[in-house]
């Protein structure tokens, strides 16, 4: 049943990665993404690869979950690989076949780009597999709180995320129900060209919109009734607090970044 779907792909475990403060993991992800684009030497590729392997192992999440996370972007990776291999020109020709020539530089570029893409996806998966969506939201709210001073509505944005997380499963279940109800009335959802199909979605989209507005109205009332009045003067039930391990993790992240920058400049 749809009821069981969860947002994101959190895998419950109790590894050190799971227990880190979400802010540490968010910064770690950003640093890692920067590193993926900074790496240029074999040394730096080796260092980043080693980091990915170690993190995957200590996350204690089964490997197949990482493989699964690559699935949706598999096509993009293949496409990037092909584009790079055929459209990068260079000096050393490896294969020549009619108007198509493959250069050594093309192969290297294709490999580099694919590896970067794969690491991008894997590092995001490391975050989402070890952190619940709520923790990510909380981490973002706390980390971005200073932006409040320049009037960026951080509280409102994170409240929207919280509500979205709560309602996505409910609305997806409802979509399923409306879809079934209209199929029972003979609605044809599967045949025809794009325009006809889009038109055939009306019996699903209209009820869905109506019910979403109704839910939004109900929710607003319920929030009002529980004294919601914006972020001002609000306390938090789950106050994020750094522990010793978080400090150590920050140090390691910075050291890693420094290492990659050094490799780029001196190797």
């Amino acid at each position: 049943m749809r009821r069981n779907i969860t947002i994101g792909q959190y895998y419950p475990e109790n590894s050190i990665l799971h227990r880190l403060d979400p802010r540490v993991k968010l910064l770690g992800l950003i640093v890692f993404l920067v590193c993926v684009f900074l790496m240029d030497s074999y040394w730096s590729y080796g260092a980043v690869t080693a980091a990915v392997v170690i993190l995957v192992i200590i996350s204690r999440v089964p490997l197949r979950y990482f493989v699964r996370s690559l699935k949706p972007v598999f096509f993009i990776i293949i496409l990037t690989f092909i584009l790079n291999i055929f459209f990068t020109s260079g000096e050393e020709i490896l294969v020549k076949w009619g108007i198509i020539s493959i250069y050594k530089e093309g192969v290297i570029m294709a490999l580099k780009m694919s590896i970067r893409l794969i690491y991008l996806v894997l590092s995001s998966a490391l975050l989402t597999l070890t952190t619940t969506p709520n923790d990510i939201t909380d981490g973002m709210e706390k980390a971005l709180r200073p932006l409040n001073k320049i009037h960026v509505p951080i509280h409102e944005m994170t409240m929207m995320m919280t509500i979205a997380l709560r309602f996505i499963p409910i609305i997806s279940e409802e979509t399923d129900k409306i879809r079934k109800a209209q199929i029972s009335r003979g609605a044809d959802l599967e045949t025809g060209n794009i325009i006809k199909r889009a038109k055939n979605m009306v019996p699903i989209l209209v009820p869905l919109l109506v019910s979403s507005f109704r839910r939004a109205g109900d929710l607003a009332l319920a929030m009002d009734a529980r004294c919601y009045h914006g972020g001002e003067g609000r306390t938090k039930y789950k106050e994020l607090r750094y522990g010793k391990k978080d400090g150590i993790a920050y140090l390691m992240i910075l050291a890693f970044l420094a290492g990659i920058i050094l490799m780029r400049n001196f190797l």
Binding site: P133, R166, R215, R226, C227, Y228, H229
Partner: peptide, 26 residues
């Protein structure tokens, strides 16, 4: 409607919602 008045994705966090609004200490 029970679905439309629960705000948090975790039960205890939802129960805390009103208290957070009132500024009750953690």
């Amino acid at each position: 409607n029970p679905d439309n008045q629960i705000i948090g994705s975790i039960i205890e966090e939802d129960v805390a919602f009103g208290l957070e609004n009132l500024g009750v200490p953690t």
